[in-house]
């Protein structure tokens, strides 16, 4: 059978999407980046407010761990520079989520609960494409990315890491996997809003706090059950602790390197399944309410 037959073309399109999907993604990212820049460029007060508030939030997120490491010259088996690396990684993950999944795309329960999904469904593009692009805010979302990256690089330099080129590839894979874990968790919990929009609209705020507040802490010393739970049920340990441990070579084996991406794939699959069921329910019941502020963004 010829590979350019309609059957094969359709099969390939099913697997990788329409042939111009890549171009569409780039074009949409460019659009949202421009809109984000224009939003911030409305005035210096807006820009200042954004960056100062993000800086304060970022500072608050790492202060406890930093002070503990400073006071005790490290935490458990982690030296002070290693803790700083862990902090940098955790902030970088949050920063990347802020950049790519802003405007409540990471807090999907708000969009569902406020009836904002209707705005998405009347756009002539696949839902996955909207979810991947509409929250792109490289300007307003960079308030945590820049300090996170800076902290990671500085801590790595303090550690005098001698790493092969594959280490950078592992770092990139782990960052993507950590982001996927956080988002999958948010979508699994946030999908509750399909069934109880009013009650569950803000549930992603709580789940976000749950998964990000503990992320910059080393988890050694916990019981097997507690640690197991924090790596599966509420996968806090996979946001920063586990990948930082792997990247710094703390008790690493080849098998351990594969855990984070594997769990990320499982969690994303579960999130996809629950979200799809929620969407089907939404198609049957529609949005049960619509708020005045349930408009775009």
């Amino acid at each position: 059978m010829a590979v350019d037959s309609p059957f094969w073309r359709r099969a390939c399109e099913k697997l990788v999407g329409e042939e111009d999907s890549g171009k569409r993604l780039l074009s949409l990212w460019r659009l949202y980046a421009t809109m984000d820049l224009l939003f911030l460029a409305r005035g210096p007060q807006v820009a200042l407010t954004f960056y100062v508030s993000d800086f304060v939030v970022g500072l608050a997120a790492v202060t406890a761990t930093f002070l503990l490491a400073e006071r005790f010259d490290g935490i458990g088996p982690w030296t002070k520079p290693q803790v700083l690396f862990l902090l940098g990684y955790a902030v970088l993950v949050r920063g990347l989520i802020n950049i790519f999944f802003s405007y409540n795309l990471a807090f999907i329960s708000r969009r569902i609960g406020r009836g904002q999904l209707d705005h998405v469904l009347i756009q002539p593009q696949p839902l996955w494409m909207v979810l991947l692009t509409e929250g792109f805010a490289p300007v307003t979302g960079s308030g945590m990315f820049v300090p996170g990256l800076g902290l990671l690089v500085w801590a790595a330099s303090q550690l005098n890491l001698e790493v092969p080129p594959t280490w950078y590839l592992l770092l990139a894979v782990d960052l993507v996997a950590s982001i996927a874990v956080v988002l999958a968790f948010e979508y699994i919990v946030g999908s509750l809003a399909f069934w109880a929009p009013r009650a569950a609209e803000e549930i992603n705020s709580s789940s976000w706090r749950l998964i990000t507040q503990l992320a910059p802490f080393p988890l050694e010393g916990l019981s097997t059950w507690a640690l197991g739970s924090l790596l599966t049920v509420v996968p806090v340990g996979l946001v920063a602790w586990y990948p930082a441990r792997v990247l710094l070579g703390v008790g690493t084996t080849l098998w351990e390197n594969a855990v984070l991406p594997a769990v990320a794939v499982v969690l994303v699959t579960v999130a996809f399944w629950i979200f799809s069921r929620g969407l089907r329910h939404y198609g049957r019941t529609g949005s049960t309410r619509y708020l005045d502020y349930g408009h775009r963004r």
Partner: peptide, 10 residues
Amino acid sequence: GQRTELWWDH
């Protein structure tokens, strides 16, 4: 009528 497709802050 009761909602908008316009981007609020733009």
